[in-house]
């Protein structure tokens, strides 16, 4: 058995193929943190989660610190319970507040964590006490129109 030019071409082909895969992996894709890796779970109850989805990022100060692990409806309190899988290396005080925010005008929704000042840190299974629901655009517009309608007569009266 000896080397042939055929081997050279096949070697080149395989190398090119793997180069393409490496290009895709390094330049195009990014790694997210391993699911079920070193994370701890806390829960937060929201009145309204808007369009939040599982696997949405959890950010603090703009840095991704975890993922939304699951969402379910609690039929006792009629609120949405959101499970947050936070990375083990990030610690937050127990009075941290969670709010549902939107990246950009039409972007995806994510959970923002604002750390409190307590000296105790969140443990696995804890509940976040302070939460702020998603802003629902329809409600906001409704409120705006309502205010507008309420102020029009007084505006007219002052003009007279």
């Amino acid at each position: 058995m000896s080397r042939t030019t055929l081997d050279l071409w096949v070697g080149l082909f395989v190398a090119l193929g793997f180069a393409a895969l490496v290009f895709l992996a390094v330049k195009v894709g990014s790694y997210t943190d391993a699911p079920g890796g070193a994370t701890y779970t806390v829960e937060a109850a929201f009145d309204n989660i808007g369009g939040l989805k599982t696997r949405a990022p959890v950010k603090s100060a703009g840095v991704v610190v975890g993922r939304v692990g699951g969402i379910h409806f609690d039929s006792q309190s009629y609120r949405a319970i959101v499970r947050l899988d936070l990375q083990r290396r990030y610690e937050f005080p127990v009075d941290t507040s969670a709010s549902i925010l939107t990246s950009g005008l039409l972007g995806e929704q994510y959970i923002g964590l604002d750390p409190g000042a307590d000296s105790e840190i969140l443990e696995d299974g804890d509940k976040l006490q302070i939460t702020q629901s998603a802003v629902v655009l329809e409600k906001l517009i409704g409120q705006f129109l309502f205010n507008k309608a309420a102020e029009t007569p007084t505006h007219g009266a002052s003009a007279q």
Partner: peptide
């Protein structure tokens, strides 16, 4: 172009599944 691409293409979800 590249940073938006990198932010939303996930290695496991998109590249491994495509392969």
């Amino acid at each position: 172009f590249w940073s938006q691409m990198r932010a939303s293409v996930d290695f496991r979800y998109d590249i491994v599944n495509g392969t």
